[in-house]
Structure formats: C-alpha cells, structure tokens
Amino acid sequence: MSTETPAVRVTDLTVAYGELPVLWDIDMDVPAGKLMAIMGPNGAGKTTLIKAILGLVPPAAGRVEIHGGLYRDQRHLVGYVPQRGSVDWDFPTTVLDVVMMGRYGALGWFKRPGKRERDQALTALDKVGMADFRARQISQLSGGQQQRVFLARALVQDAQVYFMDEPFQGVDARTELAIVDLLKELRTLGRTVIVVHHDLQTVRDYFDWITLLNVRRIAGGPVDEVFTSENLKLAYGGRVEFLQRQAPCDPPPDAPDLGSYPGRIRP
C-alpha cells in the first residue's frame, strides 16, 4: 500500500483561527477505495479538516494532495457535500436545479447547463429515490430529503474522492441506511468517501477506515485496528461508554438513550 498513491495525503496541516489552533500538525493518508469516518468530540476540528483540505479555510501550514497532485489541480476529482444547515433552503430554486449545480464545476465559467446535465441530474435523483420531487421547491423537503438531494448533487460531480460533512445529521433511520448503501456502492466503484461521522455505534457497520481527531490526529487506519477503547479514550477523553465487542443491535441494558450519540459518551 505504501507504494500506491493515496487518494488523500495531508501533511503537517495546521489551521488556526487567529491565535487559536483548531488543527495541529495533521498527517493523514487515506488509501483509494476506502470508506472513511472522521470522528472526534465537538470542537475537534472535523469540519475544519475537510474545509482546509478543500481550500475553504486557509491553512497556517501544511500540504494537501489528492491522488498525488495539489488540490487546485485535482479539483475535478473531488466531490463535496457540505452540512445541510450551511445553505438557505428558502432559496428560489428546485430540486433538479440544485442537483445540476454539481455539474457547474465541470461546465466551467459562463457555460449553461443543458440537456446532458439535466439527464445526469435526473439519473442521480432516481438513484437517491427523489426523482418524483424534481420540480419541488427545496423548502418543501424534509431533512432526510434535503440530504438525499445533496447526495444526488455529489453523485453528478462524478468524483473520485468525496468529502461529506455529517450526511446523517437529522435524517431518519431509513434514509441513513439508504445513504450508507450508496456510499458502499461508491466504494465498490473504487471511489474514496470521507465522512464526518458522530455515531460510534455504527462505525463498524458503515466504515472500513477511520481517523480519530481531537485538534491533533489521535489515530488512523483500518477500523479493525484503530477503533479501540484506548484510542476512543484518547480522542474523546474520560470514559467512553462503548464496548467494542458490543453489537449495535445488542445495546447494554444500562444505556437508555441509544437513539442518539450523546447517550453513549459520558465525559
């Protein structure tokens, strides 16, 4: 694997807001074809890491390579799904139009989307089960539907590496499983998918690679090796109410709040 070019290579990345370091000297290699979770407590810098890789926040130091090249040269290989809450859902546009936005990068400046882009968008909407909603104004969607639309928009980008910021935030279980199936399908096609994730319970089912983050990189690698109680303790600090051998469908009797992640982490 060391001979293969990683899909994402981050070297000595430091990001600071003013004097306050948000990410300290991050080194991270993500091999191609992995489905990776970025995990860590609130304020660990998960979103900032993605944004710094994508050049949306300026790093104080460090280097990012996508498939062996600098990000600005490899932009076309990268797909991005921001947090659902980062956009104004009252914006005057339709579902189909939002999905077509995923093609804007490939279209380049000035060129308008046409029939080809429309067909691509419809195919992607069909894939996420939202084809019937194509003409809807986007404010009329539920949270899960909004997330599916964002996913469809990422699909039409036809990228090699996807960055997704909390795609499971506020979606119901059915949508979550549908999204996971799609992500696994992307992996089967050899794409790399990097997901900011919160739910410790589902890591083993969803992901094969993980980076644990808490301002510094705590650990990273295959889930089987890295997703251990010691590493979780290092990342989250204190006692992590999670037993590695526990199957997700077999919760401990003393954990009442399994519907959402905070119940499982006690500082």
Partner: peptide, 22 residues
C-alpha cells in the same frame, strides 16, 4: 445573464462554489 449560474451557486452554496473553483 452572463454570470447567472455563477451568481446562483455563489449565493446558494458558497462552499460548493469554492470547492468547484467558481
């Protein structure tokens, strides 16, 4: 008219616009 698509994306989702190089 000329920058319709660019204005739309930059207004709706500046993050995506930036990541797409727009």
């Amino acid at each position: 008219t000329v920058f319709f698509k660019e204005l739309k994306l930059a207004t709706f989702d500046a993050g995506l616009a930036a990541s797409l190089g727009l």
